[in-house]
Write a protein that binds this DNA or RNA. Structure first.
Length: 868
DNA sequence: CAGTGAGCGAGCTTCCGCTTGACTT
């Protein structure tokens, strides 16, 4: 008697294998095994002529989906079929959520087993839980499967009807979808706010006071009983105080006058208010909160976090990393509590075990929260991990353990002080009992709030006290525009609205960047002009689809379908073919929308219009009777900074030709300031028949075109510049501008070149030999396995018999590999790294070399995608 | 890499969610 058990992931398969009796074979499906055809080459010839072929859903016949096996799943399916041949029974043990139920159903439909089928679900991977699940098998829940199918079809209908509309009206290859279009809209909405933002400025006073030798600070709160204006009193759209607000706005003169007036006066404490407060630890990690915290505390991108977590999961250090649940098993709670007792003592335990409940919209909770694996948590030190993995495990360990710790007890202290008619306030915080603070304090998107987490000590004060004023300063402030989204804050917002799933948060960001809807500038997501045009069109013509509520309404209906309260077919029919249905809407709008209008952006406070052209965005300025003036917008110029002056400069460059900075003193040719696809650059002479490629040099980052003088331009054009000879080797030391910015190099020709980037305060035009030597003497910065070629090998294996070049063993992000010249070959997972020999390495390299000659079509198409 | 913004025009582009291995280092 033998039974085939199918789960989603190979890691899970390996784990539960140990908990099942002999005669059970466990295999992985690797996620979904069937799907709607994703592109034309997956549509079978038999339906290619049909009107609905491109959709992959027969909208004319009860929305029957056309399922195919994607290319990358063919192998898995074949293996599963083979495994089934040997089995007398099939157990489908995928996750208990909507997608998991659907995977089981697809497996059943696809494998058409002739043997009995059971559906098994479990929530914990322990001996008891799995044995119990085995005894309580059930049938596939078809209503849940219908809910998934409805979700799948609806997403397809949205994506594959709206995207083609965008191709016709804005630009080919654009995309729209239930999730990505909402994400893009969030970015665009924030950028609009930033464009509309007007800065306001205000002043206040800061006093440094002292009592019983302890210094503390106080801020001016009110004057003559009227509150002093602060940032929140401003209207961000006007830069002025909100109408009818009764506050006193201090300007610089007034603030300084008041400062003078109050100097040397008597300060009196009028009121001391102490309030006890408690803080509760945050729940254990879900995918979304892990991504946010790893981004804030470790600086990891969502993608990096997931890759690192996957490694930890596969090595058995943590539980499953794609989850929306904050639930901890009994076992996990016990393990966390024992960690608290051992490490911090019993007084740090929460009196009762804490069980958190998931409040996220649309959560499906097929898994536990992300936590250290096992019945006993390994402490971060015990794992022996290093690098990113160690840091991420540490974060997960602390968060999990902290969740079972006692509340922190604090006292908030507010002290009011009076000096003449001015009222000042000082706030402090005392930590009476740190509780979970000992282990973990959640990071914050707002650095000011993070500061609040620290204890602010005040001396013992009581009403009537007269502290000394040591210093009184007038301080100017300016209101700040709303911050752009980061990866972390975007994921947080999407999760809050129930948009996207744990398995997709990281890829949503990839999608919107890959489609040219946004770029990442200093960790901030900045939407493109294309994003503006697409969002405008969708908001105007399909407001429901880009509403953040759309997904939660859909989820509600899907829930109702899964309980049988709503039928799936009528829902889809109304959504697509109803009077205000999607198909009807798209057809109607197709004739209404003028492509020229859709490609044109009217930005607030700008007469010039932005248009999307074949080669990117450009500005158009009406020029009376004449042809309008046009000029390209360089990619580094973002929508929020495009103002009148910027447009002026772009147009001027275009019409008057490039600015001439002067004549090169030695070459006798003119030097021009130009703006190219890669930003501003200087050029010596003009392009002509005999001089097709005149000498050019980009401006280093931070140098503004308008600040560049003739001398500076000459300096830039003379790069790389010889600084002198290295005192030890006699080789040339030069300074130049490279792909990564300004650098110095110790150029020993064939012996090798040693590069260092200049520091922020160094000037490429004036740097001398001494400073260059100083930089070269510093070690190379190798942060987290940077791109430096000087990576230390794990082990040297020996020399290649043919060319005598060294063959070394390295550790890389994809596991250990051996390297010979430019050829790398991974060491197979089952081989222990310690045992790899030179001969084995030669074999691996040989196999790799021969396979390299045949490139697959899929890798070609992937690199093409990346290039866009 | 470095100055364009219409048109010849077959066939293709595109969604979300579930997974790992391939990429290369």
């Amino acid at each position: 008697m033998s039974t085939l058990v199918i789960v989603e992931s190979p890691t899970k398969a390996r784990t539960i294998r140990n908990f099942l009796p002999t005669g059970y074979q466990v295999e992985a499906s690797m996620g979904h095994v069937r799907d709607l055809p994703s592109a034309a080459d997956e549509i079978p010839a038999s339906v290619k002529g049909e009107k609905w072929a491109q959709l992959g859903v027969n909208v004319e016949a009860n929305f029957e989906p056309l399922y195919v096996i994607p290319k990358d799943k063919k192998k898995v399916v074949k293996e599963l079929k083979d495994a089934l041949k040997k089995a007398d029974e099939l157990i489908l043990a995928t996750d208990e959520d909507r997608e998991g139920e659907s995977i089981s159903w697809h497996l059943k439909e696809l494998l058409k087993p002739k043997v009995p089928i059971k559906r098994m679900v479990f929530h914990e991977i322990t001996q008891e839980a799995i044995r119990a699940a085995l005894k309580n098998c059930r049938d596939i829940d078809l209503q849940l499967v219908h809910a998934q199918e409805t979700r799948r079809i609806l997403d397809r209908l949205v994506g594959y009807t709206i995207s083609p509309l965008l191709w016709k009206k804005i630009a080919p290859k654009l995309s729209a979808g239930r999730v990505q279009s909402v994400a893009v809209r969030l970015l665009v909405a924030r950028e609009r706010e930033r464009r509309a933002f007007h800065q306001g400025s205000y002043w206040d006073l800061k006093a440094t006071l002292e009592q019983t030798k302890t210094a503390f600070e106080a801020r001016l709160m009110s004057l003559d009983g009227v509150k002093i204006a602060t940032g929140s009193d401003f209207d961000p759209e006007t830069g002025k105080i909100v109408k009818n607000r009764k506050v006193k706005l201090l300007n610089e003169t007034e603030a300084k006058a008041l400062q003078k007036q109050l100097e040397g006066k008597v300060w009196t404490v009028t009121e001391v208010d102490e309030k006890p407060t408690t803080r509760k630890p945050s729940p254990p990690f879900t995918t979304s909160t892990l991504q946010q915290e790893a981004n804030r505390k470790l600086g990891l991108s969502a993608k990096e976090t997931m890759r690192t977590a996957q490694n930890l999961y596969e090595q058995g250090y943590i539980t499953y990393m794609r989850t929306d649940s904050v639930h901890l098993s009994k076992e996990a709670i016990a393990a966390a509590r024992s960690c608290v007792e051992q490490k911090y003592g019993p007084e740090y335990l929460s009196p009762q075990p804490r069980q958190y409940s998931t409040k996220t919209k649309g959560a499906q909770e097929a898994h536990e929260a992300i936590r250290p694996a096992g019945k006993q948590f390994r402490t971060p030190q015990e794992t022996g991990l290093d690098g990113r993995e160690a840091k991420l495990y540490d974060l997960i360990w602390k968060r999990t353990v902290a969740s079972q710790m006692a509340n922190a007890q604090l006292t908030q202290i507010a002290v009011n002080l009076q000096v003449e008619t001015a009222e000042f306030r000082s706030s402090g915080k005392r930590i009476n009992f740190p509780g979970f603070f000992r282990a973990y304090v959640e990071g914050s998107d707002d650095p000011d709030a993070a500061l609040e987490n620290q204890e602010v000590l005040l001396p013992e004060l009581k009403a009537g006290d007269r502290p000394d004023c040591k210093q009184l300063e007038a301080i100017g402030h300016q209101t700040q525009p709303p911050a752009r989204y980061t990866e972390a804050s975007l994921v947080k917002t999407l999760e809050k609205e129930g948009v996207g799933r744990p398995s997709t948060y990281a890829s949503i960001i990839d999608t919107i960047i890959g489609k040219g809807y946004a770029q990442m500038i200093n960790k901030a997501l900045v939407p493109s002009f294309t994003a503006f045009a697409v969002t405008n069109l969708l908001e105007q013509h399909f407001p429901d689809l880009v509403d953040t509520q759309f997904t939660s309404r859909m989820e509600q209906t899907l829930d109702d379908i899964s309980t049988g309260e709503v039928e799936w077919l009528p829902y889809l029919k109304t959504f697509y073919q109803g009077e205000t249905g999607l198909e009807t809407q798209v057809k109607e709008r197709e004739s209404q929308i003028d492509p020229n209008t859709a490609k044109t952006l009217e930005l607030e406070g700008l007469e010039a219009k932005v248009r999307l052209g074949k080669y990117g965005p450009y500005v158009v300025v009406e020029n009376g009777e004449d042809e309008p003036l046009r000029a390209s917008i360089p990619p580094h110029l973002t929508p929020d900074t495009l103002d009148r002056d910027q447009v002026q400069t772009l147009i001027k460059q275009k019409t008057e030709g490039p600015d001439c900075l002067g004549v090169h003193p030695e070459m006798g040719e003119e030097i021009f300031m130009l703006n190219g696809t890669y930003g501003p650059y200087v050029q010596l002479g003009e392009v002509s028949e005999e001089n097709k490629k005149p000498k050019r040099a980009s401006l280093p980052k931070g140098m503004k075109p308008e600040d560049v003088t003739l001398d500076m331009a000459v300096g830039l054009l003379s790069l790389p510049r010889l600084l002198g000879q290295h005192p030890e080797t006699g080789a040339n030391v030069k300074a130049g501008l490279g792909r990564f910015g300004p650098y110095v190099v110790h150029d020993q020709g064939k012996e090798g070149k040693d590069y260092r980037s200049l520091k922020k305060d160094d000037d490429i035009l004036t740097i001398g030999l001494d400073r260059a030597l100083e930089l070269l003497a510093q070690p190379k910065r190798t942060k987290g396995g940077g791109r430096g070629k000087t990576k230390e090998p794990l082990r040297e294996l020996g020399k290649h018999p043919e060319d005598g070049e060294a063959i070394n063993l390295y550790d890389g992000p994809y596991g250990p590999y051996v390297k010979h010249g430019k050829v790398n070959a991974s060491v197979p997972k089952e081989r222990p790294v310690e045992e790899v020999t030179l001969d084995e390495a030669l074999e691996l390299l040989k196999a790799k070399k021969s396979s390299k000659t045949s490139k697959t079509s899929s890798s070609r198409s992937r690199s093409r995608k990346k290039a866009q």
